[in-house]
Nucleic acid binder design. Sequence first.
DNA 1: GCCGGTCGTTGGCATGGCCAACAAGTGGGT
DNA 2: ACCCACTTGTTGGCCATGCCAACGACCGGC
Lengths: 156, 156
Amino acid sequence: MANKWVDCGGMETRGAPRRLRGAATWLLGQTTIHAHRLVSDALGAVDARRYHYSLMAALDEFGEASQADLGRRCGLDRSDVVATVNELADKGFLERRPDPADKRRNIVSITPSGMAHLRHLDRVLGQAQDALLAPLSVAEREELVRMLNAVLEHHG
Amino acid sequence: MANKWVDCGGMETRGAPRRLRGAATWLLGQTTIHAHRLVSDALGAVDARRYHYSLMAALDEFGEASQADLGRRCGLDRSDVVATVNELADKGFLERRPDPADKRRNIVSITPSGMAHLRHLDRVLGQAQDALLAPLSVAEREELVRMLNAVLEHHG
DNA sequence: GCCGGTCGTTGGCATGGCCAACAAGTGGGT
DNA sequence: ACCCACTTGTTGGCCATGCCAACGACCGGC
């Protein structure tokens, strides 16, 4: 859903206090706001959310898994995994079947239709990311990713 | 309030899908989560929030202003400015007086006690930011800030 | 067979960011 | 002088996000 920031070009954060404009934490937050908007709008246009992509990407990469495993992989709470798997299963992108070897677990797997949808989301998100990082060169983007990874690993 | 991520070092997002780990938007989001936690915890320890700092920084830099102006400067909704000014005025950090030249407006100004508090928050936030960016060299931090500013300006 | 721990699931809660509506007030046009 | 569009402060509410607590079912080791 496009909102004020998207519609009319946003507030004049250009005139924000220098203390904020100079603080990396604030810059990160502001940039993430834009990223979230671009991504959410892009995903919303195909009736998807962030969690959808996370789970399906994990299933594609690691193969079928239990819901708890999926949650750990993606950093989602178990309860949120339930809701997200429900949504995706309703659309036919995921399948949920009981694990015969452990009756507590559900084995979640991605369907062919889900794979197609995932690739579609890949393209959609790629465009959103390009839009976000438009002013940065390829080298700069790699540098940015490298630094963010360093920070995350340090706090991992 | 420290929570799970802070307490036990966070989930194993190290094992997150490569599609996520490689996406700048996701990395930004994850990094911002850590930044938010560090900042919120640091501010919470002195009974403050993000909005507090934004408003007081704006008042310090630009001098007294109406609430609507403050909101535009900092990118806050008018209604959120009301609540934040209430909190800060209750603590004696801000003063609100009617504008004689325009009876619709309130003129908000920062008090000496507010200035002292602002400087305290400056130190607290500086530490939080240092903690966040610990693995980056000074040159890298400047590069990061430069790139984020470029992105923000492009979308400004 | 018991017990600590894990699983899926439900329900709820706090926060943040936003929007809508309102009365009071302003300024420009006529 | 009046009207009209607009702004301002304020209240109230909405919804998505990220959590946490508790439950019954179930597992594994002792």
